[in-house]
């Protein structure tokens, strides 16, 4: 394969970016993961290691993306952080305190929206506030503000089924943020959206992140999305799920869609491609291969598609 473009190393950072990362790392640590392991028991009572010795830290108001091939346990990781699953060993610390079980200090946005279909947009956003013991008036007041922030004021009294996918996800984000969590965990939140809505949602999310005191941990399998959004990218590898690399994204902040073609961006993408789809080394597993043969006659009117 010919290299079409001479790319810089993804490790090269210009002064502004380097300076920013130095400052970022001096910020207090919000989420810290120490020696996290997770084993699953299969029905055939074999033990499968989903996550093995995961260690990383996120700093205050940092945006971290988690990326990895399928089966690398990125969903398991975020579910453990949310407290929805219990790690086999290891610790999750939030502001230095160990977390046990789900809690309002960690908001979560799921790929499947998970809005309560029986509640209106307003009541969905009020849910967490009411659980936190706020009175209905306070909760409603707050909910209206959050709905206004995500630009859905005219839909306060609509039910989720009346909204488009993008709007549903904005409600889900508002609902998670209304509790004013320390960390926002997002599990492939835009995975079910079409490309256009997805890029719009990405800019909305950047805007929210820039204006609110929140640390975001964002799972995705889309390389562009990860580079575009993240300060740092946690790359996992599969079988077992381990940290492969923690990449500092050399693309300057604040981000804009034009940067998608900048040399730093492409260099980072190249690196991610290499990590996630490593060049095949001879022995390809037979089960993961097609057995295509030519089924078009030699004298067919379109002899070749090329």
């Amino acid at each position: 394969m010919t290299q079409l473009l001479e790319l810089p190393s993804y490790l090269e950072q210009d002064d502004a970016v380097r300076d920013r990362f130095t400052r970022l790392k001096q910020r207090p640590v919000t989420l810290e993961v120490k020696g996290l392991c997770k084993d699953f028991e299969t029905p055939a009572s074999e033990t499968v290691t989903a996550l093995k010795d995961i260690n990383f830290k996120t700093h205050k108001r940092e945006f971290v993306c988690v990326i990895g091939p399928s089966g690398c346990g990125k969903s398991t990781l975020i579910r453990i952080l949310a407290g929805l699953e219990i790690p086999t060993s290891g610790q999750v610390l939030l502001d230095g305190k160990e977390v046990k079980g789900p809690g309002q200090d960690r908001g979560m946005v799921f790929q499947g929206y998970t809005l309560f279909p029986w509640l209106t947009v307003k009541r969905n956003v009020m849910f967490g506030l009411q659980q936190a013991g706020h009175s209905n008036e306070v909760a409603e007041e707050d909910a209206r503000q959050w709905i206004d922030l995500v630009g859905l004021t005219q839909f306060v009294d609509s039910y989720p089924h009346q909204l488009s996918g993008g709007m549903k996800q904005r409600v889900a984000i508002a609902r998670a943020l209304a509790n004013q969590p320390r960390v926002l965990l997002m599990d492939e939140p835009f995975g079910a959206l079409d490309a256009q809505t997805r890029s719009k949602m990405q800019s909305y999310l950047m805007e929210i992140w820039q204006n609110i005191d929140i640390t975001i941990l964002f799972i995705t399998h889309d390389l562009d999305e990860a580079i575009y959004l993240a300060d740092r990218i946690l790359v996992l590898k599969a079988h077992p799920g381990e940290v492969q690399e923690l990449i500092e994204v050399p693309v300057p902040q604040p981000r804009s869609p034009e940067q998608l073609l900048s040399p730093e961006f492409l260099a980072t993408k190249k690196r991610l491609e290499d990590l996630i789809h490593p060049p095949e080394e001879g022995d390809v597993i037979d089960s993961d291969k097609m057995n295509m043969v030519r089924m078009v006659p030699v004298n067919h009117e379109v002899e070749s598609v090329f």
């Binding site: 789900p102 309002q104 979560m108 799921f110 659980q131």
Partner: peptide, 25 residues
């Protein structure tokens, strides 16, 4: 079940999971 998980991350515990999520759901 993801509705129950969402409710949990929003701070719902046993009793409100039952009465605010399972029953209306």
């Amino acid at each position: 079940p993801s509705l129950l998980e969402a409710a949990q991350t929003l701070g719902a515990k046993n009793k409100s999971l039952l009465f605010k999520v399972v029953v209306p759901g």
